[in-house]
Amino acid sequence: MYGPERQQEILRLAREDGRVDVLSLAETFQVTAETVRRDLKVLDRAGLLRRVHGGAIPVGRLDFEPDLAEREATAADEKDAIARAALAELPAGGSVILDAGTTVARLAALFPLDVDPAAELTVVTHALPVAARLADHPGIALHLVGGRVRHRTRAAVDAWALRAYGEVAADVAFVATNGFSPDGGLTTPDLAEAAVKRATIAAARRVVLLADSGKFGQRHFARFGDLSDVDLLITDTGLSPEDAREIERRGPAVIRA
């Protein structure tokens, strides 16, 4: 069996079983443990597996992006906790950008209705699910950014969206990501989506990243920023204290909700 064939089979086993270990793989393929470690290193560099002690676990694929319904159902409790914690980061009045993402949409659903009219919040978003949740909110001046709408995320992308964000200077941007890590930065599968996310970061004075711990260590095709671009990461307790400290060494404060 050639190396690429073996690596494809290792990836299949990891996705089926949730993890693989070096010694079992060496026995299965009748190769040395060092050969297996090289295979895992190749898959890790491609962002398909994440190496852990003694083996590897699967992470997001470079060629796969789950649809909106699947993402809504993933880590639902963790996303709810993150959204509740993010409420404290809303400014009293002022302006915010809400990125496309299921956790950000949960935050939008929690916006309080009993808002002082003098503290009206201006919200800018390119995400249709977010806009739909806030369209009738009495305390919000909603601005919907246009562009080509991606079916998979219901988010506007391309030149119209980028031009609109180039004219915005918001107080806070609440940003979502498909993957984040100290070395890999912030990544998402689609280049057009990444460009808009990059624009939202540039359009705000403060950036709050909302990401559940399952996205830690994942790397996708399109990189749109570094952890140093983020002021605050709100995640869940699935992120270990050690990993949280490593992230904080890269710049952002971390809240584990």
Rank of each mutant, 00 (worst) to 15 (best):
A56L: 11
G147F: 00
R163L: 04
V130M: 02
L43I: 05
G94V: 01
A131N: 03
T122W: 02
L113C: 13
A56K: 03
A135Y: 13
L128E: 12
D136R: 15
L98H: 09
L121W: 02
R38V: 07
R154V: 03
A135R: 07
A170V: 06
D136T: 04
G93T: 07
T125L: 02
R61C: 02
A141N: 14
F174N: 06
A109W: 12
G55F: 13
V130Q: 04
R150Q: 11
A88R: 14
A56M: 07
V175T: 10
P112M: 12
G47K: 01
R133G: 05
P58V: 01
A169S: 13
A170P: 00
A127M: 03
A118E: 15
A76W: 11
G60R: 09
L48Y: 03
E78N: 09
A85H: 08
A173C: 12
K41R: 15
A127N: 10
A109L: 10
L162S: 09
A141H: 13
L49F: 06
T102H: 15
L128F: 09
D44P: 03
V52W: 14
T102V: 00
A76C: 05
K41Y: 13
L110W: 14
P66T: 12
P117Q: 14
D116I: 15
A131P: 01
A76S: 13
P138N: 10
F111P: 01
G139L: 08
L87P: 04
L107H: 07
L43P: 01
V115D: 04
L142H: 05
L43R: 00
G60E: 11
R152N: 14
D63W: 05
S95C: 12
E120I: 05
A119T: 12
T74I: 09
R106I: 00
A108D: 01
V104P: 14
L110I: 12
R154T: 07
L87I: 03
G60N: 04
I140R: 14
R51N: 06
A127Q: 04
T153W: 02
A92C: 03
G166N: 15
V124T: 06
L162F: 11
D77R: 15
D67H: 12
I82E: 02
A164Q: 13
A88N: 08
A156N: 14
R150G: 06
P91Q: 10
A108G: 12
D158M: 13
H143R: 13
R150A: 05
A131R: 00
V96S: 09
D39L: 09
V145D: 08
L90M: 10
R154L: 14
L43E: 01
P66N: 15
V104T: 13
V157G: 01
L113E: 08
G60H: 10
R37Y: 10
A108V: 02
A141D: 15
L90Q: 03
A109V: 09
D67N: 15
A141W: 10
G55D: 06
R163P: 00
A86E: 11
T153E: 11
L43H: 01
I57F: 05
